[in-house]
Design a protein around this nucleic acid. Structure first.
Length: 801
DNA sequence: TCGCTCTCTGTTTTT
DNA sequence: CAGAGAGCGA
């Protein structure tokens, strides 16, 4: 690290502050990036020295200010590119930043080698100091899948039943501890009691295994670096000297480990600029601490706090609706977003009978907007997005859009590098690069099928452990010694030989693309999928081709594997205009002219589970999520809810989200669908009062019902409970009410009665079973329907369906 | 060892 | 309901 030619720190010593170089730089270089900045943005760009907290509301030009600030640092001669540490959470954000700095300066900035995600930067650092935590610098990075497999082994080795003690749960605990920068010995209190009192013991065993494998998981990247910086002042001092300016994006999302890491690095020169928005903190459930941003001023006394409050994205009603909603949260740093825009659409609100109808209506609206038949004017499919709370909500839209032929794209679905075939192929590549990668060997030794089962696996493992060698070497020994016999032995011998050959090829510098192709071909992996008659096999072969194509962007397999371990995004090819469907979480940082926010029902959004597990804190995070959703919209935002939804195969009814009541009325336009609010639908119908426009009279009942929902156990448990309700006393008021309504409703119809159903139309009652009625519908045929969803046919007239 | 059937369990997700 | 994983029979 002291080598002046160190590629990580290529710059000559820093320029004299304020002196000749800076002056010359200023004279010589224009600062076009300052043009058009508003006063707050400009202040944020120019306050280069000392701690700065930039509170940047949604759509206030945060990225612009951040990138301009970096450009300014460079132009002012404050630092060379290599002396700026700029941290983001996602690779996408890092890429965008790099790209935009280049744009501002009119040249590509090559030297910014400390611009990247927390994880990518930590990898780079950790490779330099790996030995300080007992690793070698070529350690491998395990993804979640590897992590789970390893934990399973650890649990098994501890003599625990992996069924009762699922590895996933332990992974969650360990991740949580690592997020909080806790080493096994520091796990205390309730945490220590977790996992049958053996949580920290297993955590320790897992860490042990990781070191033996020369591997780290994602959490370790931060944890190890915090340990190193904390325990080795010389290393820390080096970074203090070299990294003169620190910038952090999305500061509200940092967890404790990231916070400690930053604080250690920043405490030298205190030139740290954190950018964030406490109102957009939506990752508390995975360890983010809003507290980090809330106490910035305490951590860095004398910090300048700069608020970016002018919003350039959304129309005035959208902004006002979002602001009104978020004002229900407590403990905010407080910002007042405003916009120069005066014209714009109100936020639209509409309720639907069920999830299918919601999907149908949104599909129609999207088409209408694409035709130009709606208020803000024509908006193409690319400009429209549906943001859902939970991914299972996507299904209704996909089904609907497939039937009407509306092109859509799901963002954040199964990622390319997480696919089975890609992971298999990657395991082969990993073994070719590092023959001692036991996890990779474990994955592919019998893929494609080589006639090696559990028994062979154990044999290899024992031999390897006894000899103290890798699984691959153990396999070689097993074949030699005849410990594995029969057709499996021949196949295993071949595999061992092949891997040796591929490894030699890697070492001798054969083109990595050739090697990769040879591996997939000679291992018969490709052949395996070619022979597979399953419909998805073709797609998998396509993916493998794409994998090979992706290799072209790299110099060698090592570089590629390194990249993939940290970068799990899939840039989807996009030529055709499509509607985007994604979760609210995935939408953070994006914007669309038109946004649909479906599923605003209590229990779904806000999520019952978030409230059960985290109480008021959980509710507030849900509210921030709602805020993020609304503020994604530029011109039109539509919120919808459904009275009934199918969840795990069962119909559930729900109340409209409490967030709906929190929207300021003046900025909301209620679209009342014909016929839905005739009343008499029980719980769902009652709470639609607000949407009907008769606010006030229903609020008491609505509030009481909400209180039930808030206090009741989790909604999925309730699904089960409702199913068993006939044999068990009713426990929750909500559950009881639903059944009472059903029972009353069922009793209200006699056999032969004419009824009307929102979806199936007119029909005749043919029988009753408990709370359900058998109906012969004139058009839809025979169905079993919960009585509450029916209206007597003669009443249907008033309701104008 | 393979493949079928049964049982269970279902937010949000980046790296 | 639907996907994953375990368990059992061939």
């Amino acid at each position: 690290m002291t080598d002046p030619r160190d590629p990580d720190f290529p710059a000559p010593p820093p320029p004299a502050p304020g002196g000749g170089l800076a002056a010359r730089a200023m004279a010589a270089r224009p600062m076009p990036y300052l043009d058009g900045l508003n006063p707050a943005q400009r202040a944020a760009v120019e306050a280069l020295d000392g701690p700065v907290l930039m509170l940047a509301g949604a759509g206030t030009g945060k990225t612009r200010a951040l990138t301009a600030r970096i450009a300014h640092l460079l132009v002012m001669g404050k630092a060379y590119p290599s002396q700026i540490l700029a941290v983001t959470f996602t690779n996408k954000a890092a890429r965008e930043m790099k790209h935009r700095i280049g744009g501002l300066l009119g040249e590509t900035v090559e030297g910014m080698r400390w611009l990247g995600t927390f994880h990518a930067i930590c990898v780079k650092m950790l490779r330099r100091h790996a030995e300080l935590v007992g690793l070698k610098s070529n350690f491998t990075i395990l993804d979640t899948d590897d992590q789970i497999r390893l934990l399973k082994q650890v649990i098994l080795a501890a003599g625990m039943d992996e069924k009762r003690w699922p590895a996933r749960q332990l992974a969650g605990l360990i991740d949580g501890w690592k997020n909080r920068a806790l080493a096994p010995a520091q796990v205390r209190g309730a945490d220590a009691a977790a996992f049958g009192n053996r949580g920290s013991e297993l955590y320790a065993a897992y860490q042990e295994r990781l070191l033996t494998l020369n591997a780290v998981d994602f959490g370790d990247l931060l944890l190890h670096m915090v340990t190193i910086l904390r325990d080795h002042p010389d290393v820390l001092a080096e970074y203090h000297r070299k990294l003169r300016y620190i910038l952090v994006d999305e500061y509200q999302d940092t967890n404790v480990a990231q916070y400690l890491w930053l604080r250690l690095l920043a405490q030298g020169h205190r030139n740290v600029c954190c950018v964030g928005d406490d109102d957009q903190s939506i990752y508390g459930w995975r360890g983010a601490e809003v507290g980090n941003i809330l106490r910035f001023e305490k951590d860095f006394p004398g910090a300048q706090v700069i608020r970016l409050e002018q919003n350039y994205r959304s129309g005035p009603h959208i902004l006002a609706a979002a602001s009104g909603l978020i004002s229900a949260n407590s403990g905010r740093l407080g910002k007042t977003l405003w916009t120069a825009e005066t014209e714009g659409e109100k936020v639209r609100l509409i309720g639907h009978w069920d999830g299918d109808e919601e999907a149908r209506w949104i599909g129609d609206e999207i088409e209408a907007l694409a035709r130009g038949d709606r208020a803000p004017g024509r908006v193409g499919l690319d400009g429209q997005a549906i943001l859902v709370r939970a991914s299972h909500q996507m299904r209704a839209f996909e089904d609907r859009f497939l039937t009407i032929g509306l092109p859509y794209r799901v963002i954040g679905g199964p990622r390319f590098y997480e696919r089975l075939e890609i992971r298999d192929a990657m395991a082969y590549f990993r073994l070719a690069v590092s023959p001692a990668d036991d996890l990779a060997f474990d994955r592919i030794y019998n893929t494609p099928k080589r006639g090696l089962g559990e028994k062979a696996r154990q044999t290899i493992q024992h031999i390897a452990r006894d000899a103290g060698v890798s699984l691959l070497d153990g396999a070689a020994l097993a074949v030699q010694s005849g410990a594995i016999k029969g057709k499996g032995a021949a196949a295993l011998r071949l595999l061992v030989e092949q891997l040796a050959r591929w490894h030699a090829a890697v070492l001798s510098g054969v083109s990595h693309i050739e090697i990769a192709e040879a591996i997939l071909d000679e291992s018969s992996y490709t052949a395996m999928w070619q022979a597979d008659p399953a419909p998805e096999a073709a797609g998998r072969l396509e993916n493998l081709k794409e994998l090979i194509k992706a290799l072209e962007g790299f110099d060698n397999l090592q570089g590629f594997l390194e990249h993939v371990a940290l970068i799990m995004d899939n840039e989807t090819e996009t030529d055709e205009a499509k509607v985007s469907i994604m979760t609210l979480h995935a939408a953070k940082g994006l914007e669309f002219p038109v946004v649909f926010l479906p599923g605003w029902e209590d229990g779904l959004f806000p999520s019952q589970r978030a409230m059960d597990e985290s109480g008021l804190r959980g509710l507030e995070e849900e509210r921030r999520l709602a805020y993020v959703g609304i503020t994604r919209a530029e011109r039109l935002c539509t919120i919808t809810f459904a009275g009934n939804r199918r969840l795990y195969g069962q119909w559930q009814s729900a109340l409209p989200s409490r967030f709906i009541d929190e929207l300021p009325e003046d900025h909301v336009e209620v679209l009342t669908p014909p016929g839905l609010y005739g009343g008499g639908y029980g719980a769902a119908g009652m709470a639609f009062g607000r949407a009907l426009g008769n606010a006030g009279d229903s609020t008491l009942e609505t509030r009481a019902a909400r209180a039930d929902a808030y206090n009741s156990p989790g909604w999925q448990r309730m699904a089960g409970a409702a199913a068993k309700a006939t044999t068990r006393p009713l426990s929750t008021p909500r559950e009881a009410r639903g059944l009472v309504i059903d029972a009353q409703a069922a009793a209200a119809f006699d056999t032969g009665a004419r009824v009307f159903h929102q979806k199936f139309g007119y029909g005749t009652v043919t029988g009753a079973e408990g709370d359900k009625l058998s109906i012969h519908f004139d058009k839809a045929g025979d169905k079993h329907v919960v009585a509450r969803f029916l209206v007597a046919a003669e009443d249907a007239g008033d309701v104008s369906f």
